[in-house]
Simulated assay, not measured.
Amino acid sequence: MDITLTDGGGDRPSLIARPIWEAWYQGVPMTPNQWAPYAARGRAEWLDLTATGMNDQGPDRTGGVHHLDGRFVTDGPGLHCAMAEALVGPGGYFGREWNAFKDCLNGGFGVAVPFTLIWHDADIARQALAEVASDLGKGLSYFEDIVQLLERYGVTVVLQ
């Protein structure tokens, strides 16, 4: 049987997403940093898939110490992949960009403030995101803005 599709469909995943979707086909990732080998666009696709399970993360936990592995935080999507992994585990959702991240800090996504975040290898993100402007009025980089946002919400941030 030959089938010809005339409508390519606007909602089909990009070719760059194929290996990511194949990895997720086996189930939600359970190993840390599986998103790390991908470039920014692939990491954004990874974040899109984490959003599909955001309602399944269970009740919020408060307090505690969370460790963010900053070795691979070299772009905005990488920051959000690492942050979600630190707070709710591999394959977890905790925002895909600044506004969604801020919404997650209000609770309902598996962890709620107050808590302590120990950000290992923070200088990697500080340098990689130095030119990524977040708040032009304040002159902050994306890294600085995320750290200040966390602190405003009552998170104790330890940069290592």
Rank of each mutant, 00 (worst) to 15 (best):
M1W: 08
M1D: 11
D2E: 14
I3K: 10
T6M: 14
T6R: 15
G8W: 13
G8R: 12
G9R: 05
G10W: 12
D11I: 10
D11A: 13
D11M: 13
S14N: 12
S14D: 15
L15Y: 13
A17F: 01
P19G: 08
I20T: 05
I20H: 02
W21G: 14
W21V: 15
E22S: 14
Y25T: 06
Q26F: 09
G27T: 06
M30C: 10
T31R: 11
P32Q: 12
P32E: 11
Q34F: 12
G42D: 03
D48T: 08
L49I: 09
A51P: 04
A51C: 11
A51T: 07
A51W: 06
A51S: 13
T52K: 13
T52P: 04
T52L: 15
M54L: 08
D56Q: 10
Q57V: 05
G58E: 08
G58D: 05
P59R: 12
P59C: 04
R61D: 10
T62C: 14
T62Y: 13
G64Y: 08
V65G: 03
V65D: 04
H67K: 12
L68C: 05
D69I: 01
G70C: 07
G70M: 03
R71E: 09
R71Q: 13
R71L: 14
V73A: 03
V73N: 01
G76C: 07
L79R: 04
H80G: 00
C81H: 00
C81S: 03
A82W: 00
M83I: 07
A84E: 06
E85K: 03
A86K: 00
V88G: 00
V88P: 00
G89P: 01
G89E: 05
G91T: 01
G92H: 01
G95S: 03
R96N: 09
R96L: 05
R96C: 06
E97V: 06
W98N: 12
W98S: 14
A100Q: 15
F101T: 04
K102C: 13
K102E: 15
D103W: 10
C104D: 02
L105Q: 06
N106F: 07
N106W: 09
G107L: 00
F109C: 06
F109L: 07
V111L: 12
V111N: 05
A112Q: 11
A112F: 10
P114V: 07
W119D: 02
D121P: 01
A122R: 03
A122E: 02
I124P: 01
R126H: 10
E131C: 09
V132P: 02
S134Y: 15
G137N: 05
K138D: 11
K138E: 14
Y142S: 07
E144M: 09
D145L: 04
I146P: 00
V147C: 07
Q148S: 13
L149C: 14
L150T: 03
L150Y: 06
R152K: 10
R152W: 09
R152A: 06
V155G: 05
V155R: 02
V155I: 08
